[in-house]
Design a protein around this nucleic acid. Structure first.
Length: 358
DNA sequence: CCTTTGATGCGCTAGTAGGC
DNA sequence: GCCTACTAGCGCATCAAAGG
């Protein structure tokens, strides 16, 4: 996420604020980013307003929920009132499916897992407990929305669009600007990627349609549906965007590169791995500071520890650390259950299964 | 009726051209 | 150097026709 002058932007949101008080500061966790935010003149009166302010401040384009860290339990709870907050509290931004309002504990916002039966699907479960690490950047909990929400663009682009729309309504002149187009494509690709790394044709068409509906000046005069060019550009952009993320080491995409395919599978279209419906944590990165080798050592220790008694806490910790390894084995190597069981005996321990099912 | 086969279209990665 | 646009070569899913 880009750097952001939070306090300047917040000044624009005075309309949200009621009771003017002294500055209140928060530590805000967004995926792996940890930010600071200061409310100079008191807090928004409602949680919804608070979410809006945070979304604006941190350029979040998707629907979010808010959790706060309770000092008694030392754990996160869903925020139901800004009155629960005090200076220097920790807030956590969680992504929720559009239309779902979080009014209770976070576990109830998990995706539907009632039909999950395989080990692969079992491992896909997210959890707030200690078994699975905190959400990685690639986690997806939002299903593709019925109506795609067009995100906000850069300040320059928004200004150009505002003027462009006014001109379009006056005389029908479409807006064509390479820099505006580039910014729009980048933000749309980012927004689509928050739902899926591989948007299909109907999905891209829906995005293009939503774009020209929101910004009529982007409608293409010669196009049969007004946005076919945008559909094509989004297609190219999604592919180029994936290439870019690959270069940055995104594990979900790296697994589909020729280099990372097994011998004999090194063809572009062969054995492409995509997340399944309802799947989250598809291929999370290793925890900070961990490598394949270091985690392999942990796995070997885990196998040994699994044979001893009174080790639940240690196993929990080690299973948590090695979660990303198991995802790689399940997704990348299509391992047989028997072999998987041999490598990860603790996973099949009743205690661990209960933890996953919670 | 079921299975196999071939045609077709879509979408993937890697690589590249050309513009800025 | 980064971007969009494009191509080559390929795998995969789908579907209709052919064959047993």
């Amino acid at each position: 996420m880009e750097d952001y002058n939070t306090e300047t932007t917040l000044a624009d949101h005075n309309a949200f604020w009621e009771d003017m008080q002294h500055a209140v500061r928060f530590r805000v966790i967004i995926n792996h980013d940890i930010k600071k935010i200061t409310f100079q003149n008191g807090l928004p009166s409602s949680v919804e307003d608070m979410m809006e302010v945070l979304k604006q401040a941190f350029s979040i384009t998707t629907d979010i929920g808010l959790q706060y860290k309770d000092t008694d339990f030392d754990d996160f709870f869903t925020l139901t009132s800004t009155a629960d907050l005090k200076d220097k509290d920790t807030l956590k931004v969680v992504h929720v499916p559009p239309g779902i309002i979080m009014t209770t504990v976070p576990q109830e916002c998990k995706p539907d897992t009632s039909d999950m039966s395989s080990v692969d699907e079992l491992l896909s479960l997210d959890s707030q407990d200690s078994l699975i690490p905190s959400p990685p950047p690639t986690e997806r909990q939002n299903l593709w929305p019925a109506i795609f929400p067009i995100p906000s663009f850069s300040y320059n682009t928004e200004m150009a669009l505002r003027q462009g729309n006014e001109k379009f309504l006056k005389d029908g002149t479409p807006l064509t600007s390479p820099s505006v187009k580039s910014d729009i494509l980048e933000r749309l690709a980012e927004a689509m990627f928050s739902y899926t790394a591989y948007p299909n044709d109907p999905q891209r068409a829906a995005v293009a349609q939503a774009l020209i509906e929101k910004h009529p000046c982007l409608r293409e005069p010669g196009s049969f549906n007004g946005c076919y060019g945008w559909q094509q550009s989004l297609k190219y952009k999604c592919a180029n965007y994936r290439s870019k993320l690959k270069a940055h080491g995104n594990p979900e995409l790296l697994i589909n590169t020729m280099k990372h395919k097994q011998e004999g599978d090194r063809k572009p279209a062969k054995n492409i791995k995509k997340p399944r419906k309802s799947e989250v944590n598809y291929l999370p990165p290793h925890p900070a500071g961990e490598t394949d080798d270091s985690l392999e050592t942990v796995r070997l220790e885990l196998v040994a520890v699994s044979r001893t008694k009174d080790n639940a806490h240690m196993i929990n910790d080690m299973m948590s650390r090695t979660y990303s390894c198991r995802r790689r084995e399940v997704v990348g190597q299509s391992m047989q259950v028997a072999e998987f069981k041999e490598r990860w005996p603790a996973l099949f321990d009743p205690l661990q299964v209960n933890k996953l099912a919670q």
